[in-house]
Design a protein around this nucleic acid. Structure first.
Lengths: 164, 164
DNA sequence: TCAGTAGTGATATATTATAACGTACCTCGT
DNA sequence: ACGAGGTACGTTATAATATATCACTACTGA
């Protein structure tokens, strides 16, 4: 029985080991279901991304891998990140040129991101209505939407509190 | 009397010289009003962006400048682009790591972009409702939105037609 | 006239991302 | 067992995007 998902756990204090562990477990079963291979590098990259609710640059991840004995080879980390993104286990945050673990893999979603400019936390917000509004706007001019990037930069509740 | 703005001129056939000229004229008066300086490099960069409804990489713009006798200095083009973006005369398209002229400078708007993956055209769609939906979603979790990136990749009407 | 500010010129370098090619290993059909 | 085809990885090199820094110029306003 999977741990129930807290929406927006990122911005709430929570048992992060349990949070990350739950996501990892779900990632494992997804990969198994689909006949994909969560190889050591891929698994390790996902674990690294899951350590915090922050987006990491590819080279930040690479540095971590190097510290663990892997060779410093950008293609290795980019391939792992591409795999994770393509299979919905991680997201690319374009505004930051960075990557974040997906906190609810398996649920179909191209989320909207909330990026705190103060603490750098990244949360996935439910984007169904934003998507719908965007697609309506696009449809009005005959544009067919295939992929969306929806990213907001601002202040998370805690940092807004602190700033005020 | 300014040329009336066609929403989404990008995807319609139109008199582009008039379209670009009108935007340029509006840019000029905006800059004058605000006491900013549209220096030669800045003006030229804006003109280059206005030549098509496509986003250009900083180095694409730089290549154009070099062809016209400027030295190949990335900072020059980035400074010009930063100026244009900060003052609402151009937009940064994060998905493409590229820049596009703003087609209605002066009107307060952080637009939503429609990027055709086939012909590479970029249009600015009215984003008021998308913004509102996004901000509502953010507000629900206490997040304060400061800046939004709203970008869709897909097919413009003409390319969708061709593909079908 | 002189200090302050904004802009540019120039060199160097940082950061992010991919091309290209070879090797290892798995797996499936025979 | 064996080889064909596929997937992933190892490795080198390089492409593409972006910024730091410092010197110099030109305008701006007291």
């Amino acid at each position: 029985m999977p741990v129930p998902l807290q929406p927006l756990a990122a911005f709430d204090t929570h048992d992060h080991a349990q949070c990350a562990g739950g996501v990892m477990a779900r990632a494992e079963s997804l990969v198994a279901e689909r006949g994909l291979r969560l190889t050591p590098v891929r698994r390790r990259v996902l674990e690294i991304l899951l350590e915090s609710h922050r987006a990491l640059g590819a080279y930040d991840v690479l540095d971590r891998l190097v510290a663990e004995g892997f060779a410093r080879q950008p293609p290795v980390v980019y391939r792992a990140l591409d795999f994770l993104v393509e299979n919905g286990l991680a997201h690319r945050v374009r505004r930051l040129n960075a990557f974040a673990a997906c906190m609810h893999p398996g649920e179909a979603h191209q989320p909207a991101f909330l990026i705190c400019r103060s603490c750098n936390m990244v949360a996935e917000a439910p984007a169904a209505r934003v998507r719908a509004a965007f697609e309506a706007a696009a449809a009005e001019v005959g544009f067919t939407v295939e992929r969306l990037s929806l990213e907001a930069q601002g202040l998370c509740p805690a940092c807004a509190q602190g700033a005020a």
